[in-house]
Amino acid sequence: MRRPFLVLTRRITRPFSAEFLPPWREVRRTLRTQAGAQTESDALAVEEPLEIRVRGTPVAVFMRTPGRERDLIAGFLASESIIEHSEDLLAVEPCRDAYQGQPEPHIWNAALADGVAFDPRPRRFGTVGSSCGLCGVQSLDDLEKKIPEIPKWKMPESLQVSVLLQTFEAMQSRQTLFQKTAAVHAAALWSETDGLLDLAEDVGRHNAVDKVLGACLRGGLYPLEVPRALLVSGRISFEIMQKAAMAGIALVAGISAPTSLAVDIARKTGMTLFGMVRDQRLNQYSG
């Protein structure tokens, strides 16, 4: 029988284990070559479930890399149009075991402001894989979200190639979890004046994006009213573009190529989109 959990509606001030789960762990592996075999330690990225509850109601289960759960949940709720501004979210806290009183690191609850309407019935349920963003929506119409006005940002053509290539080099140098495990994606927020503002890593591409955009929401900067760029370490899918558009992101760039729907939404919203930012070149698809 599943144990009940207490739902917390205020932030816990003292540190506890639910907020400090390691993002990687060591295992023993055998390296085999033509010359023979050698046993040594290897660092693997942690992939674990995270159940999200809103006002105590289960909404989704993510497969994610532990860390920045509040940002991840805030970003997810914003992309699902459950919340729109930082004041809509009162707290994001782990539930507690009703019998032992210990925080549960894999079950978190979001407390919404009193005036925020939430109907769990149309929401999807089940497990959201780490490679999926909006998997499980009930229809294609569910993907049509309310998109704010995108801040205008026209980077001079003379700067596009050199600036973006240098920015991705700086981004890669800060991907410490990838350097250790070679098994996570990264997303970063970038400003033309201040450089890299934030970077998050996760086994899920969309999780990394949600962590970065969720931090903006929790900081009272959502949707963005000043030009910002979202940089991603993999392909650029429709879901990533949709999350970026809802956050007011003006420019999206990725190391890999975009999908056809990603290009469509960029052109529809007026966002600038770059793909294949590597090897001293890039492709511009819109903007």
Rank of each mutant, 00 (worst) to 15 (best):
L50K: 01
E51H: 00
E51M: 08
E51R: 03
R53N: 00
V54Y: 00
V54I: 08
R55A: 06
G56S: 04
T57M: 05
P58W: 01
V59Q: 00
V61Y: 01
F62A: 00
M63K: 10
R64Q: 06
T65G: 07
T65W: 06
G67D: 12
R68M: 14
R68F: 07
E69D: 08
R70K: 13
R70H: 03
R70I: 01
R70N: 05
I73Q: 02
I73H: 04
A74Q: 10
G75P: 06
G75D: 02
G75R: 02
G75Q: 03
L77Q: 00
L77W: 00
E80Y: 00
I82F: 02
E84A: 14
E84Q: 14
E84K: 10
E87T: 14
E87P: 02
E87G: 02
D88I: 10
L90E: 11
A91Y: 00
V92E: 05
V92F: 01
E93Q: 15
E93K: 04
P94V: 05
R96F: 13
R96H: 14
R96C: 12
R96L: 12
A98R: 12
A98C: 04
Y99C: 03
Y99T: 08
Q100K: 07
Q100D: 04
Q100C: 07
Q100F: 05
Q100H: 09
Q102V: 07
E104A: 10
E104C: 08
P105A: 03
I107A: 03
W108P: 05
N109A: 11
A110I: 01
A110G: 03
A111S: 14
A111Y: 01
A113P: 04
D114A: 08
D114N: 10
G115C: 10
G115V: 06
V116M: 03
V116H: 04
F118N: 04
D119W: 07
P120M: 11
R121A: 11
R121D: 14
R121P: 04
R123C: 10
R124L: 05
F125V: 10
G126F: 07
G126I: 06
G126M: 01
T127Q: 08
V128L: 09
V128A: 07
V128R: 06
S130C: 09
S130I: 00
S130E: 10
C132A: 12
L134D: 11
C135Q: 15
G136K: 05
G136E: 09
V137M: 15
V137S: 13
D141C: 14
D142F: 10
L143C: 13
E144R: 09
E144G: 03
K145G: 08
K146A: 15
K154G: 07
M155I: 15
P156G: 15
S162K: 14
V163W: 15
V163K: 14
L165H: 12
Q166I: 03
Q166W: 09
T167Y: 00
E169Y: 12
A170G: 13
M171Q: 05
Q172F: 15
Q172I: 03
R174L: 14
R174C: 06
